[in-house]
Design a protein around this nucleic acid. Sequence first.
DNA 1: GATGCGTGGTA
DNA 2: TTACCAAGCAT
Length: 354
Amino acid sequence: MSQDNNGIKAKLFRWYQENQRVLPWRGSKDPYKIWLSEIIMQQTRVAQGTPYYLKFVEKYPLVTDLASADEQEVLKLWQGLGYYSRGRNLLKAAQQIVFEYKGVFPCEYNEVIKLKGIGPYTAAAIVSIAYNKPHAVLDGNVYRVLARLYAIEIPINAPQARLVFQKQADALLDKKNPGVFNEAMMELGATVCLPKNPDCPNCPVLSYCKAYKSGSQNILPRKLASRSVKTRYFHYLMIKKSGKFYIRQRLAGDIWQGLFELPLIETNEVDFLTINQINEILDTKITFLKPIQKTMHKLTHQHLEIVFYEADMATPIRDNGQILTDNKGLKQYPLPRPLELFLNDYLCKPDSIS
DNA sequence: GATGCGTGGTA
DNA sequence: TTACCAAGCAT
């Protein structure tokens, strides 16, 4: 078995040398840049995350630059990437590094994992790639590669999976070059050992793959059924007031924490809102209401049916926290994707604001 | 330890 | 079109 593992590693390393993609953060030993790339790439495709990595490195070349930013500014740069807690935690961790570690990135796994937003995967990735420490990463790619290589039937999202797969990853890890090994395993999963229709003919470790041997590469890894999607109904009001309009910041405990949006009414119904309903909900006097756009926005476990309205009211909204802004001022506010799309479209129309 | 958190690509 | 899911983490 140990012989098999040596063979796997040799084939994997050779394949990685010849087939690795060129990525902006590859080859860097700067823990700050490795950390940045790892956070940005969590649950994110390389093509989607890469422009954000480049933006962040340019705007914040050093961890001290990032630590002195404010949250709204970081979220604005993060806008459109999703999972915004990553952006908020990125800032907190930068401040931890500056104030608790004097600006020097910690190099021990047990210290790195204490940083906000860094869990077992990211800590292992950073210390193995930046400092060549022997910690095996376990991400979606590695789970899939290991499940097939060793024909592991335990669902990868089952509670006991982490322990079992970590054991396999640790056993296979190349202790001399853990960083390259980790990157090679992930690269194999990302480019060859794909979730659907894996490219087995081009796999460097095909001869060791138990799943391939038994023809089960298309049903592994197993996965427990995910929970259902719920639908929510959002009604956004474009309320204009002397060339400006109202926005407000979303709070903790729901999607899009820290981002900004138009005044929102959420209902349990698909229907359009009436003036009377809004007057009751907001305790105000609506003088004009017109639905102008309807859209569906899909999150992983929520489907949002969104209606945008133009509205006028006799008195301003009582609710504190409302901000008046205009087309130009809006640029500093991070927006959820559907709000960004709507406002871009709406505000570029002549006469939209008057 | 189960659940919540985005967006966009792919088949 | 729908379903899956991509370099996970916090609570």
